[in-house]
Amino acid sequence: MTAKTQLTGELTQQRVPELLTQIGTLAAATEIDLSGVTRTDSAGLALLLEISRRSHHRPVRFVRAPEQLRALAQFFGIAALLRLT
């Protein structure tokens, strides 16, 4: 069974602390839909890395990543690590 979830809105320094309270649920997902993300900064990328780290060696798929998020991940050299689609 594939556990899917979706992240929406901003993944920014202001919102990441709120999302960290849900880190257990997010890390339990096998697929996270990012199509509803409207803006991302480095804190948002750090959140995605933390979700990957806490996924207990099970790959999390980040799907439908917006162009701005993919471009930022590419800039920081972590796009391949996050396996964004």
Score class of each variant (00 low, 15 high):
T8S: 15
A80F: 02
I23H: 10
V16K: 04
R53S: 07
M1K: 06
R15V: 10
A27C: 11
A27T: 13
Q6E: 14
I32P: 10
L11D: 07
E31A: 02
Q6P: 00
G24K: 12
T30Y: 03
L47F: 11
L72M: 14
S35E: 13
G36N: 12
T2Q: 06
L47D: 09
R64C: 12
F75E: 05
R58Y: 03
F76R: 05
K4F: 00
K4H: 07
T2P: 12
E67S: 07
A79R: 10
G24Y: 14
A71I: 03
G77S: 10
T85A: 11
H57K: 06
E31D: 13
L47P: 14
A46D: 01
F76I: 14
S42Y: 00
R61M: 08
E50H: 11
R64Y: 03
G9L: 09
T5Y: 06
H57M: 05
I78W: 07
L20T: 11
L45R: 05
R54A: 02
L48I: 12
A46G: 02
A79E: 14
I78T: 07
A80N: 11
A3Y: 01
E10P: 01
E67W: 01
E10W: 01
A65T: 13
R54F: 12
A46W: 00
R54I: 04
M1S: 13
L20Q: 15
L20E: 15
Q14I: 04
I32L: 15
D33E: 08
A28W: 00
Q22G: 00
A73G: 09
L48S: 12
T38W: 05
V60N: 03
F76T: 15
G9H: 08
S52Y: 05
D41V: 01
L34S: 09
P66M: 05
K4M: 04
I32N: 05
L72D: 08
F76A: 13
S55G: 06
L34C: 08
L34M: 11
A3L: 09
A27I: 09
L69V: 13
L45F: 09
I78C: 12
R15D: 10
T12S: 13
A71F: 01
I51F: 05
G9P: 12
A71Y: 01
A29K: 06
G77Q: 04
R39P: 00
I32R: 04
H57L: 04
V37G: 08
D41C: 01
H57V: 01
H56R: 07
T21H: 14
A71W: 02
R70Q: 10
F62Q: 00
G44L: 05
D41R: 01
L7R: 10
K4Y: 00
T21N: 15
Q13R: 02
T30R: 08
Q22V: 02
R83G: 10
G77K: 08
T38R: 09
